[in-house]
Design a protein around this nucleic acid. Structure first.
Length: 108
DNA sequence: GGATTGACGTCTG
DNA sequence: GCAGACGCCAATC
């Protein structure tokens, strides 16, 4: 019986699997984790927001907006981090979101 | 143990 | 096409 991975670990894996220069959405992660609500994903990201090892800045909402930016952007230039990876962020938003969008299912 | 909240998504009007 | 309401899962109070 495999250890029951907490939602945090699941999200951690998916977010960690996101290649540099790419971004994913809560819905994509939720679907990948077989979760019915994107909120749970956001909740997990929120818990992982305290870990610098987690590129939470690569996770945005369906609109390509850095929704979580308001939570830790104050001391976490996630937009700058994305820009360094090749993802341009304008006003906490990714104009090329559709181009930079990465789906966990694509990992397969 | 119940109720509320939270970095969202999808459906209906 | 835009706006509003509901739904969902997990954690905290």
């Amino acid at each position: 019986m495999p250890e029951k991975r907490n939602i945090f670990d699941d999200i951690y894996e998916v977010v960690a699997l996101v290649p540099p220069g790419r971004v994913t959405t809560y819905g994509a992660i939720a679907r990948y984790l077989k979760i019915k609500s994107a909120r749970t994903v956001g909740w997990g990201l929120n818990a992982l927001s305290g870990r610098l090892d987690i590129p939470a800045h690569r996770v945005v909402n369906s609109k390509g907006e850095l929704t979580g930016s308001g939570s830790f952007d104050s001391n976490r230039p996630m937009a700058d981090l994305l820009a360094q990876e090749g993802v341009l962020v304008k006003e906490n938003r990714i104009p090329e979101f559709k181009t930079k969008f990465w789906d966990p299912s694509e990992e397969l």
